[in-house]
Design a protein around this nucleic acid. Structure first.
Lengths: 190, 190
DNA sequence: TGAATTTCTTGAAGCAGTTCAAGTTTTTTA
DNA sequence: TAAAAAACTTGAACTGCTTCAAGAAATTCA
């Protein structure tokens, strides 16, 4: 529901009741079935998505024709293609639900007018995106320094529940190794 | 000089002359010699750095004891460890100049008070960090889908001048392969 | 529920890139 | 400008992970 986003926002800034009303009037929650696309490669991305329930992912189709997941978004995460969003260029990515989801889709026009009415929201989005960028930096560190098996174990320790929620090939590609290799890691045959 | 930052800011927002004065009064440019550290692993990062001249990089020392560059920052780029900055946790990274630099160091306290005096700056930093995050996503895409040689050629095409500015082992590690392999790519022995 | 589809497992062969070591070239510094 | 230090090159041996293929298990959906 809407309160999930409101709570998330209020972790970083404080809104008064008038601002909450404005926000509530402009935002709507939609249910999205598993495996539906929110964005496809080639489209210009003009929407930010906030997951209140379920899980979405950003992926590409690599030259060999297989999908590789670049990012997951679970409850209380924003997901979008910021480069396409800001530059109005065709996206390199797909964004797709992994489970049945409840999602707040915030279009550029709506967001821009909200940012004018409630300038404090600039701060919220600044902090959220700076933290996301920080997380992306750590991700690159892990990809660079750990072996496949270490990356799997590290992820499993950090997000024990999440491992169950996605198929093996999605997680394997996110950790940058093959689904077959993941099967071998799991069975201890490495 | 200060105008480099001012121009960068005014690409995204418009400041009036009073705001420019405030900004100018709180910001100072410093010269930093080549190979000096702005941040070391284990320190809490409470400063953002804007490069007006020269080049800096963020790197780690991997388990084998060799340096791996995660990010470069040239003219008009911000560099910091956002995770350490926001969570007040010890950094996993080093930040070091690669050339003699002119840098604007913006401390958290200063930035926070500037953001209160000039709330528009929230917007500037939001847009900059969202674009940086977008660039990080593309970087992960390239790491995932291209061979070592393709990554090198792609980088060289995108940033032909930059390739000359850093040593081979820095660029090789940034592209996630060994310095020896880069030597072989360059000589066409692959 | 049963058929179709998707996902997972396993082993064998292969290879892109690493590691090591030693020599050469370039850059830095006293 | 000479000596020291840093960066680059080259080849040989090696390896972590991929690819392929084919069967087994689990999930989806009519």
């Amino acid at each position: 529901m809407f309160t999930a986003l409101l709570n998330h926002i209020q972790k970083f800034i404080t809104l008064d009741s008038e601002e909450i009303d404005i926000l509530e009037s402009r935002i709507s929650l939609s249910k999205v079935k598993k495996k539906e696309h929110l964005l496809k490669e080639g489209q210009v991305c003009n929407t930010m998505y906030f997951v209140t329930k379920g899980c979405a992912r950003q992926y590409i189709i690599n030259p060999r024709g297989t999908e590789q997941t670049l990012q997951f978004a679970i409850e209380n995460w924003w997901i979008t293609d910021y480069l396409s969003y800001h530059n109005n260029t065709p996206s390199h990515f797909y964004i797709q639900t992994v489970e049945n989801c409840e999602i707040i889709a915030l279009e550029k026009n709506t967001l821009e007018s909200l940012l004018i009415q409630i300038p404090k929201l600039e701060r919220y989005f600044r902090i959220v995106s700076q933290k996301s960028f920080g997380a992306a930096q750590m991700r690159i560190k892990f990809l660079f320094t750990m072996s496949a098996e270490e990356r799997y174990n590290h992820f499993k320790n950090q997000q024990p529940d999440f491992v169950q929620r996605v198929t093996q090939y999605m997680l394997a590609s996110y950790l940058d190794f093959s689904a077959e290799f993941m099967s071998k890691i799991r069975s201890g045959k490495i």
